[in-house]
Nucleic acid binder design. Structure first.
Length: 150
DNA sequence: GCCAACGTTGGC
DNA sequence: GCCAACGTTGGC
């Protein structure tokens, strides 16, 4: 099983929105590294749900992959902000996955804590800010969960 | 709202 | 294939 971290702005789609909906499509990823990470996901992989552009930013919950990467239909929708004229039906450029709600953590784990906690120094989110879908080791995943659960 | 980091685009 | 210009992300 692999673990991941996915970022969402709470003003756009928060962990509470995911809890209410039960599951969602992770549409709109338009960065190749993030897309490539999604393409490596398999059903059952666990995801740290991270609120970016939040006060404070940090991990707020856990989700699970329930559908592996498939073409994001928004790339062919002229009216979508995710439209990409260079993406063809034969060779879709952008992918998305489906995830389901697992839990909302009892406490937010702030980015600041991720950066200073022993064992988490190498987390991508702490080193390289701008990647919206990134791998996390199982060990890192467990440490983050333990912090949140006290 | 600012701006640093960094990814993408496009001219050459 | 280099690199300048430009756009976006996301912390602060």
């Amino acid at each position: 099983m692999q673990c991941w971290l996915m970022k969402s702005e709470p003003d756009v789609y928060s962990i509470d929105d995911l809890e209410r909906d039960g599951s969602t499509y992770w549409e709109g990823v338009r960065n190749y590294s993030a897309r490539n990470n999604m393409r490596k996901m398999t059903v059952g992989d666990l995801v740290l749900y991270y609120h970016s552009n939040a006060k404070p930013p940090g991990v707020v919950g856990v989700a699970r992959v329930i559908k592996e990467a498939y073409a994001d239909p928004h790339q062919w929708d002229r009216n979508s902000k995710y439209f990409d004229a260079k993406s063809t039906r034969d060779d879709p450029r952008w992918s998305m996955v489906d995830v389901e709600f697992v839990e909302k953590l009892p406490a937010l784990v702030p980015l600041d804590t991720l950066k200073t906690t022993k064992g988490l120094e190498e987390m991508v989110v702490a080193k390289r800010g701008r990647l919206s879908v990134q791998p996390v080791t199982e060990k890192e995943f467990e440490i983050v969960k333990r912090i949140a659960h006290g």
